[in-house]
Amino acid sequence: MSLKGKAAIVTGSTSGIGQGIAEALAAAGADVMLNGFGDADAVERQRAGLERDHGVKAVFSAADMSKPDQIKAMVADAEAAFGKVDILVNNAGIQTVAAVEEFPDDRWELIQAINLSSNFYAIKAAMPGMKARNWGRIVNIASAHGLVASPYKVAYVAAKHGVVGLTKVVALETAQMNITCNAICPGFVKTPLVEGQIGEQARANDMTEEQVVRDVILASQPSKRFVGIDELGALTVFLCGDQASSITGTSLSVDGGWTAR
């Protein structure tokens, strides 16, 4: 499937799921704007590698996804670099694990800002250009936790449920404009975010990390294996192609059977 001639933004793409999706889009021929935090030299190696390996144009934005003005500027910068934004992948996310009554207020606000509100602001900024060209693909990386809940993840679950609702509204508003908006809902993927959760759960429950993976992290995932980042990249590429033009407003579970229960 070719996305040659298309231009994409992938938020939170300097590591983990976002990095894999950016790689997959570039491999399909799309120009890509990376976004995220991390070591400047490592980010530059990633950016240059996309150009070298796939013959596309790649740029980087350090926009903070908790800041609406920076999100708006990121989209404007991508439009200036590529001439347009055809594809928007909202992937940036953070996590904190705590009981409701102990959940830090500042972490609640930050998780809502990065995991949910950033999607809204990025879509709002990219939408006028997509409508003007009568073509666009929006992929929001939600979570199995956008469909079901788990204890101690109140902010994350609330935000990801919000992402699923946002996806549906955008899809309805753009259904006749050749613009699609879908949510991918992964189960557990072995990313730095999940690795951090493993350590937190181990400390909180006086367990080994191996016990946490087997009895806590993957307890709800019938496949008993982590979802592959390459699987999520391939699905994103498919959703961005013309073959998926009638798929919109959906929440696609990639969770080893978790939400089939």
Rank of each mutant, 00 (worst) to 15 (best):
A76R: 12
A81C: 05
G165Q: 10
P222E: 06
F82E: 07
P128L: 10
G20R: 14
A80M: 07
I198V: 15
I111A: 04
G162E: 13
L252E: 04
A26Y: 08
V89A: 09
S220F: 03
I179T: 07
G136M: 09
A132D: 13
I87E: 05
A155P: 06
A204T: 02
S220G: 04
A244R: 02
S2G: 11
F103M: 12
I9R: 11
M127A: 14
D31M: 02
V169N: 12
I217T: 15
V32Q: 07
K124N: 11
A159G: 03
A73D: 04
L193G: 04
V85F: 03
G256K: 06
E102R: 03
T180V: 02
S150C: 01
Q46R: 14
S143A: 10
A78G: 13
N205F: 12
A80T: 15
V169C: 10
Q46S: 05
K67I: 04
I87D: 03
I247H: 05
I123D: 01
S15T: 10
F238D: 05
Q19P: 00
G55Q: 08
S251V: 02
D230K: 13
G228L: 15
K168T: 08
L172I: 08
H54D: 03
A234C: 02
E79W: 04
L25Q: 06
G136I: 12
S13I: 12
D77Q: 15
R133L: 12
E231L: 02
N90H: 02
G36E: 04
K160W: 11
M74S: 02
D64W: 09
M33N: 12
A202N: 07
Q211G: 07
T248Y: 09
F120L: 13
S246I: 11
E79F: 04
V148E: 10
L166H: 03
V75C: 03
I9N: 08
C240D: 02
R133W: 04
A126W: 05
L172R: 13
F226V: 07
F120M: 10
D69E: 15
D105G: 02
A58W: 08
V85L: 13
R107T: 03
P151D: 10
N91K: 06
S143I: 05
N119D: 11
E109C: 00
K224T: 00
V32Y: 07
E210H: 00
S13P: 04
P192Q: 09
M127E: 12
V164N: 03
D64Y: 09
I198F: 08
M1S: 14
W108D: 10
S2R: 08
S223N: 07
V59L: 09
T191K: 04
D86P: 03
A142Q: 05
T259V: 15
I141V: 15
A175S: 09
E23L: 11
A8I: 06
K160A: 07
V100I: 15
A204K: 12
K4Q: 15
A132L: 13
E23P: 00
G18N: 08
A125P: 05
L25S: 06
V227S: 03
A126D: 06
V254S: 04
M33T: 12
A58L: 07
L34Q: 11
M127N: 03
M127P: 00
S245Q: 15
M74R: 06
E79R: 10
K4L: 09
L50Y: 14
G199F: 09
